[in-house]
Design a protein around this nucleic acid. Structure first.
Lengths: 209, 209
DNA sequence: GTCTATAAGCTGATAGAC
DNA sequence: GTCTATCAGCTTATAGAC
């Protein structure tokens, strides 16, 4: 690993970080290479030198964003306790929403705009994951472990609610009149969301020792 | 009301409708007057003639979009049954999400981008409404009519979940593998979301006669 | 009131000096 | 590898004929 390569790596990351913020704030069309370059502290043509085109830069930012989003609910099986799994899923997603707001907004912008650049990801990666999780929820319901309801709606509900604090951060802050959400907010919101969804699905967390 | 004025009115509405769709699809920067004009079936300069500038047209579309969004939960008081009010609120918001997807996406885009054009609306109109509804929920909880939890999170949860089907329509369709959501879907989703949130808040709908 | 022609500026991308 | 200068194209907005 030469010094040269280290520097290349640094510039790559610097551009990707700046691009994530700009694309997340303004969408693909609204973000300009000019502003991304300024945010990264580099001249504009360097962006093109490293990433060839705006479309390719956007794709790379998206790829980085989509990796490892649902790494927890993933491994659950029929034997697991749905209350524990869903509570954990909600809290992890909520924490990600607080910590990686830029990535969440970028993804939201892309989907709202028609998901033109991530059609393959949705169909080939997310859809199989989603189908298997719908089946797991249905199996839990059939086994009498949770109340019968539409499993897909349950997943959408968790996604929508947890992402809301990142995607609609501007609205949440304006309505609460504070400048940023802290750890206490994360805790309070997590407790409320988890308790409502669990109780709504007829679930109870096992008592802690 | 002369024929001239009727025609002016028609053109106004035609442009506003076209602008709502374009802004909703591509955001403020992504939408061009060219495409709005084409969608409205008019030459480009007419847009400027009627609306002076792109920024002003955007503002007018937003104003039109923001009117009468929460016209139901609005009138509820401590005496009302929270189960009936929240069930109705959820179903109305969900129906609006299905029917006015473009407006919902436009608003979502604006908030994700930092809510720069609607800061006044959020602080001077939506915030007082939000505060009064948080107080009402808290009063219901204190009166023992519903379970104690964070009232703001309950409202965010209803907003986020119902808007999800409009804002993330592309993802919902890709994951379910269908081409559009129908009335049966609206019914099923409404039943699920309403039952989870009501049960989660310790509420039960009164039996129908 | 409506449209053609065009101005003035920003966009993504390239060429070429260093 | 890095940056200055610049291209061609599209953007919003305007001027002026009809």
């Amino acid at each position: 690993m030469s010094k040269r390569q280290n520097h290349r790596e640094e510039v790559f990351v610097k551009i990707l970080d700046a691009a994530e913020v700009e694309f997340g704030l303004k969408g693909y069309n609204g973000a300009s290479l000019q502003h991304i370059a300024e945010r990264a502290g580099l001249p504009k043509p360097n962006i093109i030198y490293y990433f060839q085109s705006k479309a390719n830069l956007y794709k790379q930012v998206l790829d980085q964003t989509l990796m490892g989003w649902n790494d927890l609910f993933d491994k659950a099986t029929l034997e697991d306790d749905p209350a524990v799994v869903l509570d954990s899923f909600i809290r992890v997603k909520l924490k990600q929403s607080f910590e990686k707001g830029g990535a969440s907004r970028l993804f939201a912008m892309e989907v709202i705009s028609g998901a033109l650049h991530i059609g393959d990801y949705l169909k080939e990666e997310l859809r199989p994951w989603f189908s298997s999780r719908v089946e797991l929820l249905q199996a839990w319901m059939d086994a009498g472990k949770m109340r019968q309801c539409d499993p897909a709606s349950v997943i959408y509900m968790i996604w929508a609610t947890t992402q809301h604090y990142a995607d609609f951060e501007a609205q949440v802050l304006a309505l609460s009149g504070i400048e940023s959400l802290g750890d206490e907010d994360l805790q309070r919101i997590g407790d409320t969301v988890s308790s409502i969804i669990l109780a709504g699905c007829g679930l109870t967390l096992p008592a802690k020792d």
